[in-house]
Every structure is written in structure tokens, then in C-alpha cells.
Amino acid sequence: MPRKEAWGAVFKDITLGQYFPEDSILHRLDARIKLGICFALLIVIFMLKSYLQYGIMMLAIFILILMSKVPLSLYLKSLRPMVILILFTGIINMLMTDGQVIYQFWVFKITYEGVTMAAQMLLRIVLLVVASAILTYTTSPIVLTGALESLLKPLRVFKFPAHEVAMMMTIALRFIPTLIDEADKIIKAQTSRGADFSTGSPMVRAKALVPVLIPLFVNSFRRADELAVAMEARCYNGGDGRTSLHVPRIIARDYVACAVCVLVCAGVLVVNYY
């Protein structure tokens, strides 16, 4: 009978910056355009009212999912952490909305409006999560921060440190896998010295993490120091005058994508008036 490892590959399985490398049109699209389209879709999703609008939007999102070439199962996985939130908002909306009562027990009453509200809320959250998942699955975190930097650049007029913020995000993302590896190694080292992370009261378990967290922090500070020295040794002095190796260019397909997005969004919003 195989037994489960107490912590085993837990750290290895965390999908951070859940990028899914593929070669699809969506992957090749300029990240800034993708960011803009995603933002537009999120706003439109918040403005949906009728079932017809929801239907069109769902169809549009579904087409995007197919275009992304990312397996459908991954999108379902991205919804999993939201299940509780979805159920909670659904039930609250169903019970708390006044209107035409269709079923009643004790102090609770379920109304026709409540059911409609709950269904719409559920669809809305699912659409929001999936729309942003399309962005993160098709864009690597590094490219995404680059796009963010480029979009935030105009804010430099107001002394907003766009480059520095993007650099901080890039460094943080870069070190996530390193830290996970190191945490894994330290946990194993302390386990082999008899440390126990999986039994005892929550207090005992929290205390058991001290031998892992202290080395992790100590090493992170040391590493930060080393990185700072390495960057300065290569004359890094902030964003002024820096150019990048791969300059993203907006080409025909990006304009087409923009146009399609505007058409779909406008269509969805206008369809209610006919």
C-alpha cells in the first residue's frame, strides 16, 4: 500500500505565474494589447445585464480559450480556488434578494429575483476568472511585467517609478522558484534531523516552522545583498536611458485583435437595445 508523502512534492506543484508555453495566436499577441483587451473584457463583464449578453460573452471567452491552445482542464483548475467564493456569493444573493417568493422555509425565502441574481453573479465570477486566466496562461510573467512597465511609463510625469516597480516585480518573480527549491531543501534537511511538521496542535506546528523560516530569511537577505552588488557591478542605476534587447512592436495582428475586441465589446453592450 503506497503511502502519501507528508509534504513531498507539494512545493514543486505550486503553479505560480501559471504561464503555459504554447504557440498560439494569443501567445504571440503583444502583451500590452493583451493586457488592454483583458481589461476591456473585465469591464464589459461587469456591465452585463441580460442572459443574451452573458451568452455572447461566454461564446467569446470560449472562442478565446480554444484559440489559446491551453487545455480546458487548466482553466477549470484556475476556478478551483474560487469555488467557495462562488458558492458563498451565490447562496447569499439567492437568500437575500427581495421579490417574488418561489420557496420558503423558516426565515429564509428564495425569490425569483434572487435566483436570477445568483445565476448572474456566478456566471460573472466565472467569466472574470477565466478571462484573466487566459491572459496569465498565454503571457509569461516577465513579458507581462515588461508590458506593465511600458503602459505605466506615461505616469513618470507624476514621478511614478514605473521602471523600478517593474524591476521589483521581475526580481520577485525570478526568485520564487529559487526560494521554493531552497525551502524544499531546508525542510528536507530539518526533517532528516528529526523535525516534525505534520503532527501536533497548530501552535506546535507553527513553532516547527521556525527552523525552516529562519534559514530561508537569512539566505534571502544574503542573496538580495549579492544581487544588489552584482547589479551595481554592472553599472545598473535605474531606468533612465535603459533600452531592452527585445523591443516589443505592435504589428498588424495586434491592430486586428484590438478592432475585434472593440467590435465584440460594443456589440455585447448594444445588443440590449434591440
Binding site: A189, Q190, S192, G194, P211, V212, I214, P215
Partner: peptide
């Protein structure tokens, strides 16, 4: 497993990182 591991001493690569 805790008892089994007690028989085996493991010195990882760069073991000094485990010091706390």
C-alpha cells in the same frame, strides 16, 4: 519514518544553509 531517519545522517550539499 521519523525513527527510521534517526538511523541516517544526511549532510546536504552546502549544509550550512540549514543553520538556524
Amino acid at each position: 519514518l521519523k525513527q527510521l531517519r534517526a538511523n541516517i545522517g544526511m549532510v546536504f550539499q552546502y549544509p550550512e544553509v540549514q543553520i538556524f
